[in-house]
Simulated scan of single mutants.
Amino acid sequence: MPTAPKAPSAPRRGRPGYDQESVLTVAVAVFNRHGYDATSMGMLAEELGVSKSAIYHHVPSKGDLLRLALDEALIPLEAIGEDQRATTGTSIQRLEFMLRSTIRVLLERQPSVTLLLRLRGNTEIERQALERRRAVDRRVTHLMITAQQDGKVRADVEPRTTTRLMFGMINSLVEWYRPDGPATPQEVEENAIAMIVDGLRARD
């Protein structure tokens, strides 16, 4: 007589009350509060109310926590350039899509993006993350150049400098935007796009 199939096992949660995702959420908050270099596994354990060995049950090292946290920001940022809307339509439409999408990632993943923007490049994991971030910036710069060559962006702006200024404004969201503040994410997005895209658009 065949044995009954085993019921699927529940997801592994590890130590009481925490799974890897919740450990990661707390780690990002502590990294942002104290700085990655100044944060020890002991500080993380104290914040979580567990032993250090309980954290190692979820991740092998503090560096692995950092890598996972940075992926929370970098993977969706990198995915923007792979979206069909980033490669079809007019150059100004593609530029607007990439900027809107970047703003949405910053607002939706504010803690992990904050961590990314505060990196100093002191470790190999940080340097790799910074290079991935620069690759995202370069895609936008290239699109700015294309839009200018197409006559969609005004000719009196320098594309690389303008890209840095755009990201400076967009990245500032992580410092001042609060989900419980007076502005909704949609209002922030529309205001930013009005200032950036309308200001760049070539006039006929």
Rank of each mutant, 00 (worst) to 15 (best):
P5W: 05
P5C: 05
R12Q: 10
P16R: 09
E21A: 14
F31H: 06
F31A: 06
F31L: 04
H34I: 05
M43P: 00
L44C: 06
G49V: 01
V50P: 03
S51G: 13
S53P: 03
I55P: 06
V59T: 06
S61G: 07
K62M: 11
D64S: 10
L68N: 07
A69Q: 04
L74H: 12
L77E: 13
D83L: 02
D83K: 02
T88E: 15
T90E: 15
S91R: 08
L95W: 05
R100L: 02
I103N: 06
Q110F: 02
Q110K: 14
P111Y: 02
T114M: 11
T114G: 14
T114N: 08
L117P: 00
R118G: 14
R118S: 10
L119T: 03
N122C: 03
A129K: 01
A129F: 02
L130Q: 12
R132A: 14
R133W: 13
R134Q: 13
R138H: 13
T141M: 09
T141S: 11
M144F: 01
I145V: 14
I145G: 03
Q149K: 11
G151C: 04
E158M: 07
T161S: 14
T163D: 13
T163A: 15
R164S: 12
M166E: 07
G168F: 08
M169A: 15
N171I: 00
L173K: 05
W176D: 10
D180V: 06
E187K: 05
E187C: 00
V188W: 04
A192R: 03
I193L: 15
A194T: 15
I196F: 14
G199Q: 11
